Lab assay of single mutants.
Amino acid sequence: PQEEYKKRAKKALKKGDEDTAREALKRAGLSPDQAEEFIRRFL
């Protein structure tokens, strides 16, 4: 589910792994723009 992928993305970002985070967010159904926004907000 979407929440699970978002959790995964946050874990990846904590490790500084933005590529894995983007992949997880893409799987969560976010557009690339939404994924970038999510990452920017998190960092």
Rank of each mutant, 00 (worst) to 15 (best):
L13W: 02
Q2A: 13
G16M: 04
R27L: 15
K10Y: 11
Q34V: 06
A35K: 01
K11M: 09
Q2S: 12
Q34T: 04
G16R: 05
L25W: 00
D33E: 14
Q2K: 11
K26H: 12
K6G: 04
K14I: 14
L30G: 00
K6P: 04
R40F: 09
A21F: 02
R22C: 06
Y5I: 06
P1A: 14
A28H: 02
A28W: 03
A35S: 08
R8P: 02
T20H: 06
K6F: 15
K15N: 14
A9V: 04
E18W: 15
P32R: 08
E36P: 00
D17L: 06
E3L: 07
R22Y: 07
R27H: 12
G16E: 03
K7V: 07
P32T: 10
K10C: 13
A21K: 00
S31R: 06
P1I: 14
E37P: 00
K26G: 09
R8C: 12
E3H: 08
L13H: 01
T20W: 06
A9Q: 01
T20M: 10
A24W: 15
K14H: 13
K6V: 15
A21G: 03
E36A: 07
A21T: 02
E4P: 04
K6A: 07
E18T: 14
L13A: 03
Q2I: 12
L30W: 07
G16N: 06
R41Q: 14
A9T: 01
L30T: 01
E18H: 13
D19A: 14
D19L: 11
E18R: 12
K26A: 14
L13C: 04
L13P: 01
R40V: 08
F42V: 09
L25S: 00
D33V: 11
D33N: 08
E37S: 07
K11F: 05
G29W: 01
R8H: 11
Q34H: 05
R8M: 15
R22Q: 04
L30D: 00
R22M: 07
Y5S: 07
F38I: 05
T20N: 07
Q2M: 12
Y5W: 15
R40I: 09
D19N: 11
K11G: 07
E4W: 10
K7F: 05
E3Y: 08
I39V: 06
P32L: 10
P32F: 10
K15T: 12
A28G: 08
L25G: 00
A9S: 02
K7E: 15
F42M: 07
T20F: 07
E4V: 06
S31G: 06
R40Q: 12
S31P: 06
L25M: 03
A9H: 02
K7R: 12
A28D: 02
S31F: 04
A21S: 02
T20I: 07
E23G: 05
R8K: 14
E3W: 10
D19S: 12
Q34C: 08
Y5A: 14
D33S: 11
E37I: 07
Q34M: 08
P32G: 08
D33F: 07
D19W: 10
K11N: 13
L43K: 12
T20L: 09
F38M: 05
K14W: 09
K26F: 10
L30N: 01
K7D: 14
E23V: 07
G16Q: 05
L13S: 01
L13F: 02
G16Y: 04
K26M: 12
Q34Y: 05
R27N: 13
S31Q: 06
A24F: 15
A12I: 03
G16S: 04
E37A: 10
E23A: 08
E18N: 08
A12W: 04
K14G: 09
Q2L: 13
A9Y: 02
F42E: 09
R27C: 10
F42C: 11
L25E: 00
E23T: 07
K6I: 15
F42L: 07
E3F: 07
L43F: 11
E4S: 07
F38P: 00
A35Q: 10
K7H: 08
P1Q: 14
E37R: 06
L43W: 11
E18S: 10
E36K: 05
R40L: 09
E23I: 08
Y5Q: 11
A21R: 00
E37Y: 04
K15P: 01
D17Q: 07
R41Y: 09
R22G: 02
K11Y: 06
A28K: 01
E37M: 05
A12Q: 03
K26V: 10
Q34I: 05
L25T: 00
A24E: 15
A21N: 00
A35M: 12
Q2Y: 12
F38G: 00
